[in-house]
Amino acid sequence: MTRAVAALLRKDLQLELRTRESVPAMVLFSVSTFVLFRFALDRERLEGDLAAGVLWVTLLFASVLGINRLFVTEREQGGFDAFLLAPVDRTAMFVAKALLLFGFLSAVELVAVSVYSVLLLGPSPFQAFPGLPLVLALANAGVAVVGTLVGALAVQTRARDLIVPLLALPLLLPIVIAGAEATAPLLAEGGAEALPGRWLAILGLYDVVFGLIAYAVFDFLLED
């Protein structure tokens, strides 16, 4: 299992390093969205609720881009068939793809949050440490699990790029709610306030529940 996951992960990372398809697109998309928000809201600096909301909406839409691309090469280049022929547990595919998406999201956030704090964020981003990385990691885990499921569901349909946002946005809404509520006090003007613990608990619960469900149902999406 571990070896299969490592092999799949290595293959996907190599593919991303050579084609540079997903992460640069997600980063560019996030930066353009920040610029859009600057003009759409007509504010030069954001803080508190608004800063958290803009950050989470941008990250959510960027992750939809990543989810869209997650399984496309597998389907188009026959990766699914090769994987099903190999004598390994099918959950390996799920774990590898979820880890890959988690990595992509973390890389995107590293750049996007830095750009955000230069372009739009009023208070210093350093006041949000170490709460912000913690919230982002918990949210990334949830997005990775649900995104892998949605990506696998949608890749076999006729209208993949329509189905992914339609399914992912409502499913990921609890993450946006909890993420925005948890980050808003961290980005408050004039020093961070305490990190609200119950939102971390909600994020953790979401991760656990959907992790278990994904573990239970993912195999059926590969059956053929």
């Binding site: 499921l149 569901l153 076999q156 349909t157 399914l167 409502p170 499913l171 809404l173 609890p174 619960l205 979401y206 529940v209 959907f210 469900i213 239970a216 149902v217 059926f220 999406l221 059956e223």
Partner: peptide
């Protein structure tokens, strides 16, 4: 099969939401 997977995921989503 896919519709059933969706029904399971969404059914679990109801209480969380």
């Amino acid at each position: 099969r896919y519709a059933a997977v969706f029904a399971v995921i969404a059914g679990a989503f109801v209480p969380i939401c």
